[in-house]
Simulated assay, not measured.
Amino acid sequence: MIQLDDDTIKRLRLLQRKHKDKRVYIKVTVLLMLHQGFTAQMIAESLGIDDSTVYRYQQGFADLGLDDYLKDFFVAYSGQLTEEEEQLLRSEIRQGLYINSKQVAAYIQLKFGVRYSLSAVVKLLHRLGFSYKKTKGVGLKANREAQEQFVKELTDILAQSNDNQVVYFNDALHPQHNTRPDYGWIYKGEDFEIPSNPGRKRVNINGALNANEVTDVLVVESDRINAQSCIKLWEKQHRRHPQKTIINICDNAPYYHSKHLKEWLAENTWCKVIYLPPYAPNLNLIERLWKYLRKEVTSYNFYEHFTEFRKAILDFFKNIKEHKQALESLLTLNFHIVGI
Rank of each mutant, 00 (worst) to 15 (best):
T8S: 11
R11T: 13
L12D: 03
Q16D: 10
R17W: 10
R23K: 05
Y25N: 00
Y25C: 05
F38V: 03
I43G: 00
I49T: 04
D51F: 11
T53F: 04
V54K: 01
R56F: 07
A76P: 07
Q80D: 08
L88Q: 14
L89P: 04
R90E: 12
S91R: 14
E92W: 08
I93V: 15
G96W: 13
I99W: 12
Y107K: 06
S117P: 06
K123I: 15
L125W: 00
R127H: 14
G129F: 08
K134C: 13
K136D: 09
L140E: 12
L140T: 12
N143K: 08
I157D: 05
A159P: 01
N162A: 09
D163Q: 10
V167Y: 14
A172F: 11
A172V: 13
L173F: 15
L173S: 14
W185A: 12
G189Q: 04
V214W: 00
T215I: 14
T215G: 01
T215M: 05
V219M: 00
T245Q: 15
I247S: 02
C250K: 00
H257I: 01
K262F: 00
K262H: 14
C271W: 12
Y279L: 08
L285K: 14
E287S: 12
Y292N: 03
R294V: 11
E296K: 15
Y303I: 03
E308L: 09
L314M: 08
F316K: 00
F316I: 02
E328G: 03
L333D: 14
I337R: 02
